[in-house]
Structures are given as structure tokens and as C-alpha cells.
């Protein structure tokens, strides 16, 4: 009796120690290395502005109560089943914003979900998609944000329920669900398809709202982009795959058109959070919107929840 009991104790201690180490803020770094934020050219704020629109940064990080498209003071509450998130100040303010960040720190934040102090961000900040951006593009985005006006003031701390309030858990979450790969060009596909994929799956982070999630809050891969329940409240988010419950009857031009003016082929106008998304995609070029449509129409159809007209 004595030996198994002692073994059990050793085993328990081992599990606790391993668990503690795996959730250490440095564990992710130790596992994944640091080679994923090296740039290959000088940053280009013009491209950064395009990515800023495609990424919808302003939709979450706009100063609370501000309607303009340049003040990034944060603080506008995002209500989810996990609790209330308050997006941070990402304006170039030296004290409260990201004005003192280095380019590498910014790229790590975007592509790795890691703050300059090593803490993991909650994936409400969609680095799960942004990680597909190249380090060069992330640096361009940083260069553009640096041209915007600084805003003073901090957002309130997130108000989350247990166990989501335990930030250490996120290190494990990231190890399980984040591989940090850049989307590689598929040479046998067209240039617009590749561009569309980059925008939809990467910086545009469409799948973050348009996919169902598992118990741990991670996207279910087999159901990616097939719509799901609305995490911000009641209702559903539509299926973007070319299934009959999704975009089967839509032409590429109709999808591109929705991203420009918000009208569906029936001349309904999109509402909810998508209205804000369209304000962002309206700033993209016709070519980019068409590329997104081409990519969406190329997806395998996945059956999603039916949605009333």
C-alpha cells in the first residue's frame, strides 16, 4: 500500500509542476522559438493603411465614444460569454499607448499574442488569425499606426468570469491552438485566390466570428467559416461557405459588392457588427474585395445553421 501511495504523490507533484511550467509566460517562447518576427525589408506605412482597414483595428480599438477612424484609445466594451473585454489603447501615445514599443514587440503581439512584458493576450484580440500575416506586413501596420494621433488614457481591466480570468491558462491555450505559421502562397492557384485567402484567413480574420467554437473557445476547424452562434449576443452569424445554407447562390461580384456597400443581393443591408466591418472593407480596393469573394467561393461547402432572410 505504501509504495503506490508514494508513487501517486510523486505523480501528482510532477503533474502540478509540469502544469505550472507549461503555463509559465516563457513556455510558449521556449517551445516556439523567436525566429518568427524577423522582417526582410523597410516598413511601408501605405501598405500598413490597407492592412489597418482589412484588419478592422479601429472597430475594437476606437476610443470609447469616438466616431472617427483614427483615434485608437480603446476602452469600448466587448461583451462575450467569457466576460467583458476592454480593448487596449493602441494609439502611439508614449505613456498609455504603444508609442514606446519596438517593431519586434509589435510583431510579437500581432503574430504571437504576446505582450512586451511576456504576458499572453486573450484571443478576443484575433492573433489566431493575425499570426498568418507576414512579419513584414505586421511591421507595415505598426508603421501606419505610428502616423496616427496619440490618445491619452487607459482602458479598464477586462472583467472576466473564472476560469477565463486566469491569464496563465492562456499560455497552454496558445500552445494547443496557435502554431504561428504564415500563410504560404499556393503556386498552382491564381494570384487573386492567394490574395483573397491572405485577407480572409489572415488580417481580415473573418473566421473569428463566422465559425463555431469548441468548449475552450477555439474555432472548430472542420466547421471553419460555416457560421455559428453570435458570441456578442443573441442571433446567428451567417455561413460564408458556398453551401445552400451559405453563399451557394451568391456570385463573386455580389459578395464583393456587399463588402463595399453592405447590400445583399436582395438589397437587405447588413446590420449588427457586420455594418462596422463593411465600413472597413469599403476602404479596400475593388481588386481586394473581389479576391476575398473568389477565395470564399472556392471553399468546400459546409452545412451551417439555417438563417432567416
Amino acid at each position: 500500500m505504501k509504495l503506490p501511495a508514494r508513487l501517486l504523490l510523486v505523480f501528482c507533484v510532477f503533474i502540478i509542476a509540469a502544469g505550472y511550467w507549461l503555463t509559465d509566460f516563457d513556455a510558449h517562447f521556449a517551445f516556439r522559438g523567436d525566429g518568427r518576427w524577423k522582417t526582410t525589408r523597410a516598413a511601408d506605412p501605405v501598405n500598413g493603411k490597407v492592412l489597418f482597414a482589412a484588419g478592422g483595428c479601429i472597430s475594437c480599438h476606437a476610443s470609447s465614444g469616438s466616431d472617427d477612424r483614427v483615434h485608437l484609445g480603446g476602452g469600448k466594451p466587448l461583451k462575450t460569454p467569457f466576460g467583458i473585454f476592454y480593448p487596449s489603447n493602441i494609439s502611439p501615445d508614449l505613456k498609455d499607448g504603444i508609442g514606446r514599443w519596438t517593431e519586434t514587440q509589435f510583431i510579437r503581439a500581432i503574430r504571437d499574442g504576446t505582450a512586451p512584458d511576456g504576458k499572453p493576450y486573450y484571443p478576443a484580440f484575433p492573433y489566431t488569425s493575425y499570426r498568418h500575416m507576414s512579419p513584414d506586413d505586421a511591421a507595415d501596420l505598426f508603421a501606419y499606426i505610428k502616423t496616427l494621433p496619440p490618445v491619452a488614457g487607459n482602458a479598464p481591466a477586462h472583467d472576466l468570469s473564472f476560469p477565463y480570468s486566469v491569464r496563465r491558462g492562456l499560455v497552454l491555450w496558445k500552445l494547443a491552438f496557435l502554431d504561428g505559421t504564415v500563410i504560404e502562397v499556393e503556386p498552382h492557384k491564381s494570384e487573386s485566390w492567394n490574395r483573397g485567402r491572405y485577407l480572409v484567413e489572415g488580417v481580415g480574420h473573418c473566421a473569428e466570428c463566422h465559425s463555431p467554437r469548441n468548449f475552450a473557445g477555439a474555432i472548430i476547424d472542420a466547421k471553419r467559416l460555416s457560421g455559428g452562434p453570435n458570441l456578442e449576443g443573441k442571433g446567428t452569424v451567417p455561413n460564408l461557405t458556398p453551401d445552400k445554407t451559405g453563399l451557394a447562390t451568391w456570385s463573386e461580384a455580389e459578395i464583393a459588392s456587399l463588402l463595399k456597400d453592405g447590400f445583399t443581393p436582395d438589397f437587405d443591408s447588413v446590420g449588427g457588427s457586420m455594418a462596422e466591418v463593411v465600413r472597413n472593407t469599403a476602404e479596400l480596393s475593388d481588386t481586394d474585395r473581389m479576391a476575398m469573394a473568389i477565395y470564399l467561393k472556392s471553399l468546400p461547402p459546409i452545412e451551417g445553421q439555417k438563417r432567416s432572410k
Binding site: G235, S269, G272, E276, S308
Partner: peptide
């Protein structure tokens, strides 16, 4: 005029609310 469609739906409509 058409911008009203989107701004109203953004604030006052929730698809499949029940």
C-alpha cells in the same frame, strides 16, 4: 440616404434573435 439602411440595422436589428 442609403447609409441609413446600414446604421439602423447596426443599432436596431438582431438577426434570428430568438
Amino acid at each position: 440616404v442609403l447609409k441609413n439602411c446600414g446604421s439602423c440595422h447596426e443599432a436596431w436589428r438582431v438577426k434570428d434573435a430568438q
